[in-house]
Design a protein around this nucleic acid. Structure first.
Length: 333
DNA sequence: AACGAATACAACCGCCGAACT
DNA sequence: TAGTTCGGCGGTTGTATTCGT
């Protein structure tokens, strides 16, 4: 049985909001609030709009202290860091940028920031005289970045492009100075007293679940050098936004899980279904580092625990690739 | 000046999960 | 416990504007 529509679609107005509609909506909410029911609100004030549309209009444009356009370099950095870390969780990213809406950030990323970054990568590729085949891949991606099926794939592709620019696991791996800094906002909002009590006052959590350790005002991801897995932490759940609810974190691979609806399997460890994930992310050159590597894991991993060092090594490599990209982008934006 | 392409951004759509009945 | 409703989210689309030829 289908779900009942939230409004009578035949009798609601669509398209751009008129100034009169804006005034009606804003005046009412200023006086009475939303009443906890967006669906009923348009009828109360005589607007022929869907409740969802009213909500969107209010949240994105009419509510106080909304900023539009003019993103600063600092905001760019925050968006980039968070996108690398958590992907297209625009509402979470927006929560770190006062006055910004998820819609605004999403549009900004899709239309400007992403292209800015890809453009830089392309430029660097040319400068470095990388092989034509690699160049071809990058150009193809630039033609239609919006065609990418998921943020995870996009992030992966960004990294694969990056891999064309430098040798794998370059000196960055062993140089924490080069690792991306998280914005102070993130440091403060991603740490909870509980986490602190468990991890010590100098530690906080990366939004994606990596254990972030302060080091002389720089930050590193614990586990890369010290053998502690950065990829799973129960404590980080909901640490950013209690109403949103993070899933348990497994580093960058989480997006693959979500994209393929295999989170529950992933949480339990190795499984046949889970590892079908890799197929979807076959790379443009026909190789599939992810699926091939994971295929190996499928054969060797039967434990329900993430204590398997091979699994951790695999995810660590992926995370390092992500951090490689974050570092490059962070310093070039 | 005219036209098509590219870009920017507002708004819509459908899905999901929580709350409620 | 199952069904329903609603808020919230991310992806996508539609359209106005800008840019390049």
């Amino acid at each position: 049985m289908g779900r009942a529509p939230c409004c009578d679609k035949a009798n609601v107005k669509k398209g751009p909001w008129s100034p009169e509609e804006d005034v009606k909506l804003k005046d009412y909410i200023d006086k009475y609030g939303t009443g906890g029911n967006w669906i009923a609100l348009p009828q109360k004030i005589g607007l022929k709009r869907c409740g969802k549309s009213c909500r969107l209009r209010w949240l994105n444009y009419l509510r106080p202290n909304i900023k539009h356009g003019g993103f600063s370099e600092e905001e760019d950095s925050i968006i980039l860091s968070l996108y690398i870390s958590i992907g297209s969780r625009w509402s979470i990213i927006a929560a770190q940028l006062p006055g910004r809406t998820d819609n605004d950030i999403k549009n900004y990323w899709n239309t400007k920031l992403k292209k800015k970054l890809l453009g830089r990568q392309k430029q660097m590729t040319r400068q470095d005289s990388i092989a034509d085949s690699n160049e071809s891949n990058i150009n193809n991606n630039n033609k239609s970045p919006q065609n990418l099926s998921s943020s995870a794939l996009e992030r992966l592709q960004l990294h694969m492009q990056l891999q064309n620019l430098q040798s794998p696991f370059s000196s960055f791996y062993n140089n924490p100075i080069l690792w991306p800094k998280l914005h102070p906002l993130l440091q403060s909002t991603t740490t909870t007293p509980d986490q602190n009590s468990k991890l010590g006052s100098q530690e906080c959590f990366h939004p994606r679940g990596a254990n972030v350790v302060h080091q002389n005002n720089n930050i590193k991801l614990a586990g890369i050098n010290d053998g502690v897995s950065p990829f799973y932490s129960e404590n980080v759940e909901q640490s950013l936004n209690p109403t949103h609810g993070f899933q348990p974190n497994f580093g960058f691979s989480q997006d693959f899980q979500q994209d393929n609806h295999n989170m529950d399997l992933m949480n339990r460890g190795g499984s046949k279904e889970l590892f079908q994930v890799g197929n979807e992310f076959e790379l443009t050159n026909g190789s599939s580092w992810w699926s091939e590597e994971v295929e190996l894991e499928k054969k060797t991993t039967s434990s329900s625990s993430w204590g398997s060092t091979s699994v951790l090594d695999q995810t660590t490599e992926g995370m390092v690739m992500l951090q490689d990209y974050a570092q490059m982008s962070y310093h070039s934006v």
